[in-house]
């Protein structure tokens, strides 16, 4: 319950500054540009949202760190982190609250893109199964990306560093599967890399199959990085 209070505060504070609105406006606009203008939607002549969701992992590489970069780094830079850690909240509530607030911002950004599937449905016989799967998988992938971004924001007091670190790590998670296909890669590592590849799990759900195996991967990433975030804060509180 306390984490929900923190989440609410974080969610609304995102829009106290114009940057929150910039992120909220740019994300759906960029997604639509990649889908309708530079993507093959009209050329393919098919009512399908696949190209739309295919661009999402790359958009999230830019968006997720933008949402999370200030969450801890800014608190630390402005000195409010110490104050926050003295509040009668458990660390778990703090971390979860910030994470849920960021996740809600991402959900709102996704809500701003719903015009795209409705347009696609008006132009042809759209199969809504992959669309639902697509949005669910963006939420899961987004959740994992935000958890990583949040953790990286907690280890630095510079927002720019937090953003760059987040983008680099997420890029790595999105490209690791390609490395797995290299001949020189030993079989065991290749399997591990494929399992860690964000895109692999993402595309499995966007095709319209809700698979507990793939969903659990993202949930596992979220749990791990949120715990790591808690550990970092715990160490700082002890000092």
């Amino acid at each position: 319950m306390r984490s929900l209070l923190i989440a609410k505060r974080e969610f609304f504070s995102t829009f106290d500054a114009p940057t929150g609105y910039v992120v909220l406006g740019m994300f759906p606009a960029l997604a639509a540009v990649l889908f309708f203008l530079t993507g093959p939607y009209f050329a393919l002549d098919e009512a399908s949202m696949r190209p739309f969701f295919a661009s999402m992992p790359w958009l999230l590489v830019m968006l997720a760190p933008a949402i999370t970069m200030r969450l801890w780094a800014e608190e630390r830079r402005s000195g409010t982190e110490e104050l926050l850690l003295t509040y009668p909240f458990q660390l778990r509530d703090l971390v979860l609250g910030k994470f849920l607030g960021a996740w809600a911002v991402l959900a709102l950004a996704l809500v701003c893109t719903v015009g795209v599937p409705f347009t696609a449905a008006m132009m042809g016989d759209l199969d809504w199964g992959p669309v639902i799967g697509g949005y669910l998988s963006v939420m899961l992938l987004g959740g994992a990306s935000l958890a990583i971004g949040l953790f990286l924001s907690s280890i630095t007091d510079n927002q720019i560093v937090a953003y760059l670190l987040g983008a680099a790590v997420l890029l790595g998670f999105n490209l690791i599967g390609v490395a797995a296909t290299a001949e020189a890669m030993p079989e065991g590592f290749a399997r591990l890399f494929l399992m860690l590849d964000f895109g692999n799990h993402f595309h499995a759900i966007t095709r319209g199959v809700l698979d507990l195996g793939h969903a659990s991967f993202y949930l596992g990433i979220m749990v791990f990085f949120l715990t790591a975030n808690g550990v970092v804060l715990e160490r700082r509180r002890v000092r």
């Binding site: 199964g129 095709r207 319209g208 507990l212 659990s216 991967f217 596992g220 749990v223 715990t227 550990v231």
Partner: peptide
């Protein structure tokens, strides 16, 4: 706190691994 992180990892890896092996899925396509 570091120990708790390792504990989380020790629980997560087999659970996620197990769920990857046993497919529980819902096909949403028409």
């Amino acid at each position: 706190s570091f120990l708790s992180l390792w504990m989380v990892l020790l629980v997560l890896v087999p659970v996620v691994g197990l769920l990857q092996l046993k497919p529980l899925r819902l096909d949403l396509t028409e």
